[in-house]
Nucleic acid binder design. Structure first.
Length: 141
DNA sequence: GCCAACGTTGGC
DNA sequence: GCCAACGTTGGC
């Protein structure tokens, strides 16, 4: 076991699907991804991988951490075989949301895909970046 | 609400 | 296979 764990970041517009709703649901199917890069990232997710949950537009902050509870499978919301989904479960909420502004200010986070490619909805995060963010989120600001 | 950036599509 | 047009996303 103990294959190396990977880290990711997914975004959602809170208007559409918020962290609060996610926690209430207990588990969700991450569907609606219609972008190849994002799709490839979904496919690379493994059970137990940790995923930063980011609110785009309204909020613009990482608000919690989720875990992959089911690896990629065919998107049930479309017959198109190209698209896949994963299941995610909330792992823990961040005490303080880590805002985009804060991420931009942190030297260690300058290489994040989030900053380089703002529009990508599922992106890889390095272990360092992951821990840095969770660190920010566990502090009172 | 606006605008810029990017990805995707379709015509050639 | 290339490139222009279009649509969508997301920050401000």
């Amino acid at each position: 076991m103990a294959a190396k764990k990977n880290y990711w970041l997914v975004k959602s517009e809170p208007v559409k699907y918020s962290w609060g709703q996610f926690v209430k649901d207990g588990e969700t199917v991450w569907d609606g991804v219609r972008n190849y890069q994002a799709r490839n990232n979904l496919k690379a997710m493994k059970n137990g991988d940790e995923v930063l949950f980011y609110h785009s537009k309204e909020g613009m902050a990482v608000v919690g951490v989720a875990k992959v509870s089911k690896e990629a499978y065919q998107d049930p919301s479309t017959g198109d075989e190209r698209w896949v989904v994963v299941n995610l479960k909330p792992a823990k909420a961040l005490k303080t949301p880590v805002t985009l502004e804060e991420i931009k200010k942190d030297k260690k986070l300058q290489n994040m895909k989030l900053l380089q490619q703002g529009r990508l909805s599922v992106s890889p995060v390095s272990e360092d970046e992951f821990h840095t963010i969770v660190d920010h989120g566990s502090k009172k600001s």
